[in-house]
Design a protein around this nucleic acid. Structure first.
Lengths: 253, 253
DNA sequence: GTATTGTATATTGGATGCAAAGTCAAGAAG
DNA sequence: CTTCTTGACTTTGCATCCAATATACAATAC
């Protein structure tokens, strides 16, 4: 029992310490105007960061205590995440962090390729020097970043989102992000540092092709980029299944 | 006040009367094992059927009374629908049925074309006579159906889903359905009986091409089919905005 | 020894109560 | 006449309480 508490407390405090000002700003500027939204964001973060592993049961009382609130906002937060597909409810048994199989990884890969190539295709003719500069800036930040395990997800997304942005398709972007997220939490858990090198070099390649506005080559490389990630993930998931869900396994007693 | 109540009561009773045995079976077999899921399904139905129009505020107390429950399960149901994107919460002001603009219709159209042509493409080589027969059966039901305003949505979806099914992509299918749903509730509200004729004849055409396994022609027709729906919808939404369903005037910039 | 039934305990699901935020209209100030 | 303030009222958001359900384990029957 105290174990689970400490895990969540770590998340909460990590949000508060790592994000620091961002957190406080968000709170002030109306991002966290309700307890529910704070809990929802905290849990989402915890799931995406891999602290709460797939299949892990989410005890309402524990979560409530961790956040220092009652169960009502916790239940609402869980329901919202259910709607987002991040947790699954089993009636009278509670919520668990939803898992994806390697079949689903392959399915998501197809979806991502379809959606991302579309977004990219729409964005290419509208890409300005300004956008490309900002994208490159993100890549430099990745190069400089010491703690990639924590920040890869966010920076990687920011790079791709920057390239998609000129397309001005908010709904499409949201869809892509949700598919992205389904991947990233496994990425963060499993990948070693060396695994970041190849995608990062592909990022530079992609940026270069974007400068040349070579549509065909861009879409081809983007497709390849997604497929590479997918392959890595499938390997890790299959391995994990074989060896028996390591890491934060903390099931019965 | 009594107006909104009667509207919702109509929905609830229509679920109970129309579904009859199905409803009871569902309840017994675990579909509605909690009040929350009943309310969520009821509200989703009400929104998709257009009974609860876009922008309409959703008073928790009213809904709770309509369903004969307290506000707790109602709030949870609303949160779940928020996660699904069907309602939007404004802190301390409550939930409203989310709306889509004609910009969003155009965006969803692109997304639908990308996802549905992909699903169809994967399904074509796997289509069996059996599938085609079931699809045709649905079309006959549409021909026979008196109350298309109520049942078009469901039957139309069933037809397309039948053709997508052999692809065996549950996540993709779910994504397509959610984009579909974003359209259908406007369709149901706005379209006249005559508007169903063209899509239905396209359905027969599509089925015919599926029999011939003419991939290129199928994908082309499917794209056209989606675009036609989209155009109708854009017209109706623009008309609605112009003619004075002003209500909550929003982003026109 | 295995299967089944009954009971204790933990956990979820739902109802109720109360404080806080928001809304609206009437009246005062400019 | 318009704008701002004030206070009653509405509605939301959260905490607490109680009931319903599931799980684990022990006791009993076969």
């Amino acid at each position: 029992m105290p174990r689970a508490l400490s895990v969540l407390e770590k998340i909460v405090s990590s949000i508060l310490s790592v994000m620091g000002l961002e957190e406080i700003a968000a709170r002030a500027s109306g991002q966290f105007r309700t307890t529910q939204s704070m809990v929802a964001n905290g849990l989402r973060d915890a799931i995406l960061s891999g602290v709460l592993a797939g299949g892990q049961p989410l005890r309402q009382e524990e979560i409530a205590e961790s956040f220092g609130v009652s169960r009502s906002p916790v239940r609402e937060a869980l329901r919202q995440l259910e709607g987002e597909g991040m947790v699954a409810f089993i009636p009278h048994r509670g919520a668990v962090v939803s898992e994806i199989s390697h079949y689903e990884v392959e399915e998501i890969t197809e979806i991502r390729i379809a959606l991302e190539t579309m977004a990219m295709h729409k964005a290419i003719p509208l890409l300005e020097d300004d956008d490309l500069e900002r994208a490159e800036e993100v890549l430099h930040r990745i190069d400089r970043e010491e703690d990639l395990i924590t920040y890869w997800s966010e920076l990687n997304w920011r790079f791709h989102a920057t390239l998609f942005a000129p397309a001005e398709r908010p709904r499409l972007l949201a869809l892509i992000k949700s598919q992205h997220d389904a991947f990233e939490r496994y990425i963060r858990m499993h990948l070693a540092l060396s695994d970041y090198e190849k995608p990062q070099s592909e990022h530079y390649e992609l940026l270069d092709l974007c400068r040349k506005k070579d549509t065909d080559a861009i879409l081809k490389l983007l497709t390849q980029h997604i497929e590479n990630t997918s392959e890595l993930l499938v390997t890790y998931i299959k391995d994990g299944k074989e060896t028996g869900a390591n890491g934060l396994a903390k099931n019965t007693s």
